[in-house]
Write a protein that binds this DNA or RNA. Sequence first.
RNA 1: GGGGGCGUAGCGAAGCUGGUUAUCGCGCCGGCCUGUCAAGCCGGAGAUCGCGGGUUCAAUGCCCGUCGCUCCCGCCA
Length: 618
Amino acid sequence: METLKRTVTCGALTGADAGKTVTLNGWVNRKRDHGGISFINLRDRYGTTQVVVDADAPESLKAIANELKSEYCVAVEGTVRARPDSMVNPDMATGQIEVVASNLVVLTKCDVLPFQIDDETDAKEELRLRYRYLDLRSGGMQRRIKLRNDVAFAVREHMIGQGFYEIETPTFIKSTPEGARDYLVPSRLYPGKFYALPQSPQLYKQILMVSGFDKYFQIARCYRDEDARGDRQPEFTQIDIEMSFVGRDDVLAMVEGLMGHVFRKTMGLELPAAFKRLSYDEALELYGTDKPDLRFGMEMRDFEPYVAASTFQAFKDALATGAAEREANAAKGVTIQGGGVKALVVPGKADYSRKQIEELEAAARIYRAKGMAWMKVVAASGDSSGEGGKPSLEGGASKFFSANASEIIAGLGAKPGDLILLVADAKRRVANVALGAVRTKLGRDLGLCDPKRFEFAWIVDFPMFEWNEDEQKWDTAHHMFTWPQEKYHPTLESDPGSVKGDLYDLVLNGFELASGSIRIHDPALQKRIFKIVGFDEAEGEKKFGFLTEAFKYGAPPHGGIAPGLDRLVMLMAGETSIKEVIAFPKNSFAVSPMDDCPSEVDQKQLDELHLSIRYPEK
RNA sequence: GGGGGCGUAGCGAAGCUGGUUAUCGCGCCGGCCUGUCAAGCCGGAGAUCGCGGGUUCAAUGCCCGUCGCUCCCGCCA
């Protein structure tokens, strides 16, 4: 190998190198044999270089060239030659030159490929994962893995530059209740005891604040034993951050600086110095989700004001039921929302077919909407000039609103040619979420989601508690260590439903990119929260005792956040699945088709771990 | 736990309401070709239509079951 070791990479040579003798190592990307002359595109991770075996080359060289096939790993010795003007390939970084081979050595051969290695492969995901090493050779995967590297580097560069320490926390930790299911690791030394893999370094980073480390970050692997999704894997990476002596705005500003640096450094993009902020309530009312895609507007409107004057009984019933439920709960001291009727005006889509509208309705039904009403706004009839008369409503549910059609059209700001979509529910949240899902689908269908645009926003003022109807108790909406906003401290117990937490999510193009909060550092307040959610104090002591104990020793006020690295890189790469930016991801059943993980283990190993398996009955 | 979709040569797909030798592109094999860069041209091989059962004179197609994959809801503090 010594004499065949590369002197340059396949992405390096330019016209200035003409005449040089070089050695290249790489893979045969493509071969084009023209009888006398043949071309080999040699590829490595730096690029592709055209290698030529000339017509007057020795027969022995031609013979080797003849045997080359796709993805053979080869070494080439040769001379750099400038291509004649007419043969320059402007689409190729090295397109000005080619390397005239004087020696070709096959380092290793390659079997017939299970799928072709292309920038954007059309092979099914299962196959790509099974042969991930081949998939990773593709231009697309190479670019995304590089981007991921660049982003991780930029993160470290920025954070350390800002005075943060990167500190590793354990990946064998104590299993804690609440939250997602833990992955467990059995202990050999302690029969019946288990380590858990962390869902996040949450408790450790808070303890690091107690220890005075002030500004901490870590690019941390996290594990959650829940079903996978496009943007969810059983193991994933987050940029875990915690700071002391800060309030919410300090954390937000820090992340704005971080994102600004990462996008500038890796993509040459300048982000706004500060991101838009929306309250959770606003986000839900306007977009029907706490992770709105702000690349397009199409905000939802309240439709309740128009229900009374209409004859649409379904809407009236939804509101009446919602009001009754709200009052029944209020009598118990539980603040909940009532019903809701929401409207979405889709500009210029009055020409949508019944089928298209039904597809939108299906999106609403997935989120438990009972149905979706619609009507079309049409220009005044009987007036061919289109002037003078008022626009009116037609089709769908319009007959129920004939009495106040003009008021509705004006109130919603709708124009002739627009489509109005309506969802009502006794639970306001259902109406919001269902119609919000329709908005999201429309954004995609109408091509309003430009993958080159990055619309960040902060969602703030999340509710602290959620009413659990099944168990008739309060749960924390996020985690139990979240700081309730100061102004609610006097009324925590008397009106939990109104309490907002000092919580903040960073959203980007419809994805939750980061979630964080100011934490409780006061043991007394922590006890109150435990009590409100009915978390047994003795149990809490056993599970989180080390944290509450630590807080007794001069805990600083602190807060943090954790942007997801996979999701960030996914969005930067214009992808919709984090599998595209993870070298070796699991499939949707948490299985790695390449190495067939998870797998069974020897009885000997089980014995050592004091485990016996009880298989589920079929 | 629930719902939608998919399963046809190595890969990606077509195959309309059941009816001769199951089609196309890429790849693969062989041949031709001195300038291609998604090379081109000619020829060829390659499929128990995921698996099992049923209906039928006849099933890739219809029905039932099963397995695998995929997306979504729930779940993911």
